[in-house]
Amino acid sequence: MNSTVRGLIAKHGGLPVSVETLADDADLYEAGLSSFASVQLMLALEDAFDVEFPENLLNRKSFASIAAITAAVGSLVSDAQVA
């Protein structure tokens, strides 16, 4: 999952730096993630993992780092499997 997330960030995150240089817990906003790009990234994640972000995950925190995104997507994917 982590590598898919990283791939989508590289494609949709619009970051001025290469994703490979970022640690899992690096602050993506400090790395230049804009709010517009975070929405594009969200759409790409929804499509790639066939999930929908609920309102309570639509905030800055869920997209603050690669780890946070992976955790958010992970919780949605496991919810989908349970259901």
Partner: peptide, 9 residues
Amino acid sequence: TMLLVQKQE
């Protein structure tokens, strides 16, 4: 942009 993902209340 936000409405692309936000769920309407």
